[in-house]
């Protein structure tokens, strides 16, 4: 075995991880470079009038307001990706901190944190987001915050479980023997040993974040017109699915490839992490 076998390296050696990474990378590149490439390639900008509505002009035709679909497609992933990454980060950091604290401390703090979790968990994530949007309106920071917050209890559950599994290990007890402060035990003894499940959570939450941001935009309650956005585009163009399918198909395809890609990576992380656990207990 190699000197330092981390979950990450072992996951990367799996073929599905390579496929997943490639798929993800393609869409991420498209989303990041698209906003610059679009005008340069097509000569249109995202909101400008390019031709009559729903015509087959250009690469992918025009939409209902006569804007160039391909330009809008190229520009439509950046915000989605940014929001999804930020929401994931908030959810994973918050959830990990709460879960580790609850799992390691136990007792009343554990009960309070986990009961609070239960309340948040009683709402499907999308419904909770809708509740917040109904009150405060569809704004970017709110989408990020509310999706992040609804991830947190789910991540916390996993982090807590993983923490409880290692907290009675003798190496934690050894650290207590040297009167190591709690924060340091959590950061130096517990955290490195629960990275496996946490990385799986990270991947999973990213996949879901992409789905939620795109879904909310699709519902007309996320990223707002006239911005170019994949979710929004699907909603705008679906009435013309039969005559001008590209306005729907391109963004659907991009979202599908992206989420399938992140999910493949996540799954290979999961099997690498599971394999590692087996080795430790064997």
């Amino acid at each position: 075995m190699s000197t330092r076998s981390t979950v990450f390296r072992r996951a990367l050696s799996l073929p599905q991880a390579k496929i997943g990474l490639t798929l993800t990378a393609v869409v991420v590149l498209l989303a990041v470079l698209g906003p610059w490439l679009g005008p340069w390639l097509t000569g249109h900008d995202t909101t400008g009038f390019a031709g009559k509505p729903f015509q087959s002009d250009g690469v992918a035709g025009t939409d209902g307001l006569g804007r160039d679909v391909f330009t809008r497609f190229l520009a439509g992933g950046a915000t989605l990706l940014l929001y999804a990454v930020l929401a994931t980060a908030i959810g994973v950091v918050l959830g990990t901190a709460l879960g580790m604290l609850a799992g390691y401390t136990g007792g009343r703090l554990d009960s309070v944190i986990m009961r609070g979790n239960d309340v948040l968990l009683s709402f499907p994530q999308l419904v909770f987001a809708l509740l917040a949007i109904a009150m405060l309106g569809p704004q970017g920071w709110l989408l990020v915050l509310v999706i992040g917050i609804t991830h947190a209890p789910r991540v916390a559950r996993v982090a807590r479980q993983a923490t409880v599994a290692v907290k009675d290990s003798d190496y934690i007890r050894a650290a207590q023997l040297y009167a190591m402060p709690r924060r340091r035990i959590l950061l130096r003894e517990v955290l490195p040993n629960i990275t496996g499940p946490l990385m799986v959570e990270l991947g999973l939450r990213l996949t879901y974040s992409i789905g939620y941001v795109a879904s909310l935009s699709f519902l007309g309650l996320g990223i707002q017109p006239p911005s170019a956005d994949w979710g929004l585009m699907i909603n705008e163009n679906r009435i013309a699915l039969v005559v001008e399918p590209w306005g729907v198909l391109l963004p659907v395809l991009a979202i599908a490839v992206l989420t399938v890609g992140t999910n493949l990576v996540t799954d290979s992380l999961a099997s690498a992490a599971a394999g590692r656990e087996k080795e430790v207990t064997a």
């Binding site: 290990s169 003798d170 190496y171 007890r173 050894a174 650290a175 023997l177 040297y178 009167a179 190591m180 003894e189 490195p192 040993n193 430790v280």
Partner: peptide, 29 residues
């Protein structure tokens, strides 16, 4: 007062090298 635990499979932090693990008491104490 020092302690040696029952199972060496769970008493050493799996993510630390042997030298790092042995150094921890000196670091802390």
């Amino acid at each position: 007062v020092q302690y040696v635990f029952q199972s060496p499979y769970s008493s050493l932090n799996p993510r630390r090298t042997i030298a790092q693990s042995v150094e921890v008491p000196l670091e802390m104490l």
